[in-house]
Design a protein around this nucleic acid. Structure first.
Lengths: 156, 156
DNA sequence: CTCTATAGGTCAAAGAAAGTCAGACATCTC
DNA sequence: GAGATGTCTGACTTTCTTTGACCTATAGAG
């Protein structure tokens, strides 16, 4: 069995028993598996990315840590559909706005959150000298990122 | 738990019970926590700066002290300050996150809104081939845009 | 007025973790 | 079996914390 798979499984077991969140020390985990610490980053990048339904945060320095949050897709099929299929690699401003207003109508986000999201992907917010193609790519990523965050919260 | 975090918490507990102001002796505090006195300055600098919503003043010599004041500021004042003065033309991810978490602590935004904002300016959301300089310029604009939206909403 | 004990301030360097990335190696696909 | 894709490592980087040596201001005694 591959090392990455073992590490993946180990973390998923920690997450299984009613915990939707784990905190671990990169160095300890690496030592436990007898591998380079950077291997942990590889596993996180390839198995615990937002596209896989996870969020991670971390802190460096003394007392540092890595936290992994599992985003369960029970009450949020709609969101996961958007993240995984509807939104591709690029999304124009109009399309973003359409999607956001749908989410609001379906009461998946509040009116306040909808306007917050809209202001983040607005032309005004992205008015820097960058080709439109890249801006739309960013919009897609930003939308996915925000939707994942909402899904994580809706974890019901 | 980190020493800095313990000291931070200790001070915040002193400030919590209806007191908006504490006065303490640097050396005593350091002795209580068994650390170097300069550690106290570190905590003040990283957790009780004006950005965090605190002011500090102090006095040396016999009978010296350090006073920490929690600044009471309305939400919209705070937002305007951030938009017009604090956030310039560029803002790194770490700084964004710091500002956002302070807004949350000061209850100007909800926890949900804070995580939404954080996910919008995250590295993850902006991982497209664009120079960092431009990303930080975008972050500044996005933050302003979102904060303006919040300010507009609060004014109702 | 001067001296000294008593505080707090500053800064650089060491330490503690995590992040990044290029390249070696492995595995899969056709 | 050659090229593409996936794994893994190690050297280097970045960020955050902690300490200690040295600096500066103040009050009070003489």
């Amino acid at each position: 069995m591959r090392l990455s798979d073992s590490i993946e499984q180990f973390i998923k077991e920690l997450l299984n028993e009613e915990a939707t969140e784990v905190e671990l020390k990169r160095n300890e985990l690496a030592e436990y598996f007898g591998c380079a610490p950077s291997q942990i980053n590889y596993v996180l990048a390839t198995r615990f990315s937002p596209d896989h339904g996870y969020l991670t945060e971390s802190r460096r320095g003394g007392g540092g840590y890595i936290r992994i949050v599992r985003v369960v897709q029970s009450g949020s099929q709609r969101l996961m559909y958007l993240v995984n299929e509807r939104i591709g690699d690029s999304l124009g401003e109009e399309e973003c706005l359409r999607l956001i207003s749908q989410l609001k109508e379906q009461r998946i986000v509040t009116a306040d959150e909808a306007s917050l999201m809209a202001s983040a992907v607005s032309t005004r917010a992205l008015s820097v000298p960058v080709p439109d193609v890249l801006k739309d790519a960013m919009r897609a990523k930003m939308m996915k990122s925000m939707l994942m965050t909402i899904a994580a919260r809706n974890r019901s």
